[in-house]
Amino acid sequence: MAAQEQVHPTRQLQIKIHHTRDDPRYRLCKDAPETVKHIISECKQLAGNAYTERHDHVAGVVYRSICDEYGLNKPQHWWEAPVKVNKNDHAKTLWDFHIRTDKHVLANQSDIVVVDKENKRAAIIDIAVPNDYNIARKEKEMFRNIALLENRLKNAGK
C-alpha cells in the first residue's frame, strides 16, 4: 500500500520529506529521480526484463482462461510460458505471434491470437500493463495499432 500511496521510502521521498539524502537519482539507472512511478513503469534498465515479465504473467492469466474456454492444453504452472501454437478441433491459439501482412504494419506482434474454428472468427488480443497515469494514452495507442493490423488483414483477404 505504501507504493500505491506514493509513500514508499524512495530516494526522492527521503530528500523531500526526511531530508536525509542528497542524490535523488534511482540507484539502478541513475537517469531520473527514484520515485515509485519511475521504478514501476519508466526505468529503461527495467524495461527489458522486469516489465516484460510482469506483462507476460498478466497475459498468461488471459491465455489460460482462453484455453479453459476452448478445452485447449495449458501450462500447468503460472510461471510456465505457453506454447507458441496450441490447437484442437475447436480452436487455435497463437502466443506472442508475428502476424504477416502484405504491407508493413508497425504493431504486428500480438500477444494472443484466438482462432475459433467453429464460428470462423479470430480475435487479436494485446495486453498492456500501464501505470495509472498512462492508461488513456496506452489504450488509444493499442486501439490504433489493432485497427491498422485489422485493416491490413481484411485487405489481404480480398
Rank of each mutant, 00 (worst) to 15 (best):
M1N: 05
Q4I: 11
Q4K: 15
P9M: 10
T10G: 00
R11S: 07
L13S: 07
L13K: 12
L13V: 08
Q14I: 08
Q14T: 04
H18T: 14
H19I: 05
R21H: 12
R21A: 05
D23V: 15
P24K: 08
R25I: 01
R25S: 14
R27D: 10
L28I: 04
K30V: 12
K30D: 05
D31K: 14
D31N: 12
A32L: 11
P33M: 02
P33S: 15
P33W: 03
E34R: 03
E34P: 02
V36E: 03
V36G: 13
K37T: 13
I40S: 03
E42T: 05
L46S: 05
G48M: 10
Y51R: 06
T52A: 11
H55W: 02
H55L: 09
D56V: 00
H57T: 08
V58S: 06
V61D: 14
Y63M: 02
R64D: 01
I66D: 07
Y70F: 13
Y70E: 03
L72R: 00
L72P: 00
L72M: 03
L72F: 05
K74N: 08
P75F: 11
P75W: 07
H77S: 08
W78F: 07
W78R: 06
E80V: 00
E80Y: 09
V83A: 15
V85P: 05
N86P: 05
D89Q: 11
A91M: 03
K92N: 07
T93D: 00
L94I: 02
I99H: 04
I99W: 01
D102T: 08
K103R: 15
A107N: 15
N108I: 11
Q109L: 14
S110D: 01
D111T: 11
I112C: 06
I112K: 01
V114F: 08
K117D: 02
E118C: 08
I124M: 10
I125G: 00
D126R: 11
A128L: 02
A128R: 04
A128M: 06
V129E: 00
V129W: 05
P130Q: 10
N131T: 08
I135H: 09
R137M: 05
E139W: 09
E141F: 02
F143K: 01
R144I: 13
A147V: 04
A147C: 06
L148K: 14
E150H: 15
E150K: 15
N151F: 07
R152D: 11
R152C: 11
A156P: 01
G157N: 07
G157Q: 11
G157M: 14
